[in-house]
């Protein structure tokens, strides 16, 4: 069957089997490699994408379920500048080791900061409970998200002043 949805700001049309999951459509059919296959069991968060602006696991979503909806991934949000403060913060504090989980964390963190621009440490931890990182022990990821929250605030105030 044909489905069409907005992927990273563009309308895409793609032929899918109903029993395919979004993760495979993105990786194998649409070449979106930043969405990672970690467990395929909705347990690790590596395949996180934004569906209509909310973080979800692309490994548990049947392809036809996204028909007509909006999917965003890290590549896009990084290229249009939306993620800049988060990327900067992750790089700066050393929150990235193997990097396999990082796109998933950025998307979750981005959604959190839109919902809650100044989260507490506990709120950050709760938001990222569904993203597993096996390298960093999370401390620097949490630190990076808190730093990004400040950087976004600076950006907002610059915009106001400008």
């Amino acid at each position: 069957m044909k489905i069409s949805f907005t992927l990273n700001g563009r309308r895409v049309e793609v032929d899918v089997e109903p029993n395919e999951v979004l993760l495979d459509v993105l990786r194998l059919k649409l070449g979106v490699k930043s969405v990672r296959r970690g467990c395929e069991r909705a347990e690790c968060g590596a395949c996180t994408v934004l569906l209509d602006g909310k973080p979800v696991y692309s490994c548990t979503i049947l392809a036809p379920m996204v028909d007509g909806r909006t999917v965003e991934t890290v590549d896009y949000l990084a290229s249009n500048g939306e993620l800049k403060p988060l990327v900067e913060a992750f790089v700066k504090v050393g929150a990235i080791q193997c990097g396999f989980c990082t796109p998933g964390f950025l998307l979750t963190a981005y959604s959190l900061l839109r919902r809650n621009p100044q989260p507490t440490v506990e709120e950050v931890k709760k938001a990222i409970e569904g993203n597993i990182c096996r390298c960093t022990g999370y401390q620097k990821i949490i630190e990076a998200i808190l730093l990004a929250s400040k950087l976004y605030a600076e950006k907002r105030s610059e915009r106001k002043e400008g």
């Binding site: 909705a42 968060g45 996180t48 569906l51 909310k54 973080p55 979800v56 696991y57 548990t60 979503i61 979750t108 709760k126 938001a127 409970e129 569904g130 993203n131």
Partner: peptide, 9 residues
């Protein structure tokens, strides 16, 4: 229950 990503779906 579960995680934010799951609770969103």
């Amino acid at each position: 229950m579960a995680s934010w990503q799951i609770r969103n779906m």
